[in-house]
């Protein structure tokens, strides 16, 4: 019982981070039918920029409260990532808008490699640690240990998702995004500046990625130039699980994937008689990805692909 409750909590925390990243994949796919494989790297850059700013702030103003320092890091990381996302689309995808679909996929992978290596040059190959600035309170609820940070991550993530849902479903720009996702051509002919909507999609998705990057590095206490790769793949799996292109699907897929992964890691030792340990955690995301692709390629909430005539 303790393990179950504990792993559900861990899964929820991890899952709400995956969901934020998955939203970036799914929004871009919804509009351009393109997998932005550089999106995981945007998350990594968000974490790195935030950590750099946090380090600098600590150096200059050692007396500042920890929360303020972290907030400062996030507030720089978000616009930095937005700019990065905007730039990635302009440089790597826009020139290939009318090219065969394989071409932007290749530039996406290329962009991902470029960003990883650029980050390695700037921040080095070592792990960068996240200083212990945040409140460290711990509570025990139903046998599960819950930290302040975990509560904070889940609350912030749900708030952001709620805001995004409002933006997409209840605002002028969200309407234009949904129209563009259904048909770029018709949206243009109804007066929507499609290029702006595409840029906006990348900007919003990258902003979410920046927040997720800071969350991950705060949660694990470190960041690394390679961290975006696995995070990106898992978030992509989450987006596919929920139904790629579907916003609520990405939220659901992220949460589910986090929970599946945590439960898998918690029980895999018992199930295999100790043969496999919890470090096999990463296997579950890809097991889920393969299962979904085989049995329900459209994902939990996705439409049948054939409907997109």
């Amino acid at each position: 019982m303790d393990i179950l409750a504990q792993q559900l909590v861990n899964g929820l925390v991890l899952g709400s981070i995956y969901a934020l990243v998955a939203l970036g994949y799914t929004m871009v796919y919804g509009i351009l039918e393109l997998i932005n494989f550089a999106h995981g790297e945007v998350t990594m850059i968000g974490a790195m920029v935030a950590l750099t700013v946090i380090g600098a702030l600590l150096g200059v103003f050692p007396q500042l409260p920890g929360l303020v320092v972290v907030l400062g890091g996030v507030l720089v990381a978000i616009p930095a990532c937005m700019l990065l996302g905007f730039g990635i689309e302009k440089v790597a995808y826009r020139p290939l808008r009318h090219a065969p679909r394989l071409a932007p996929l290749i530039t996406a992978i290329g962009m991902s490699i470029v960003l990883q290596n650029a980050a390695m040059l700037v921040w080095g190959r070592q792990y960068v640690s996240f200083p212990p600035l945040l409140p460290q309170g711990r509570y025990v609820i139903l046998g599960a240990q819950i930290t302040d940070l975990q509560i904070f991550i889940v609350l912030l993530s749900f708030t952001i998702m709620g805001g995004l849902w409002l933006l997409v479903e209840r605002s002028r720009l969200g309407r234009a995004m949904r129209a563009t996702a259904q048909s770029r051509e018709v949206a243009q002919l109804m007066g929507v500046n499609v290029d702006r909507i595409v840029s906006l999609t990348f900007i919003v998705g990258s902003g979410l990625a920046a927040v997720a990057g800071v969350m991950v590095s705060a949660y694990y206490g470190l960041a690394h130039y390679y961290m975006g790769f696995m995070l990106g793949l898992k978030a992509f799996s989450a987006a596919v699980l929920g139904g790629i292109g579907n916003i609520v699907g990405a939220m659901l897929g992220g949460l589910l994937l986090g929970i599946i992964e945590a439960l898998g890691a918690g029980y895999i030792g018992d199930l295999t008689g100790g043969f496999l340990g919890s470090h096999y955690q990463d296997v579950f995301a890809f097991f889920v990805l393969i299962t979904v692709l085989v049995f329900r390629p459209s994902g939990l909430l996705g439409e049948r692909v054939a409907n997109r005539a």
Binding site: L167, R172, R175, R178, M190, G191, V192
Partner: peptide
């Protein structure tokens, strides 16, 4: 825009005649 409501379809047409930002 087949997945959107009739009203929303018409509201998309108002896009250029309105200006709310992000």
């Amino acid at each position: 825009f087949a997945n959107m409501t009739a009203l929303e379809n018409v509201m998309v047409g108002r896009h250029i005649r309105s200006r709310a930002s992000v």
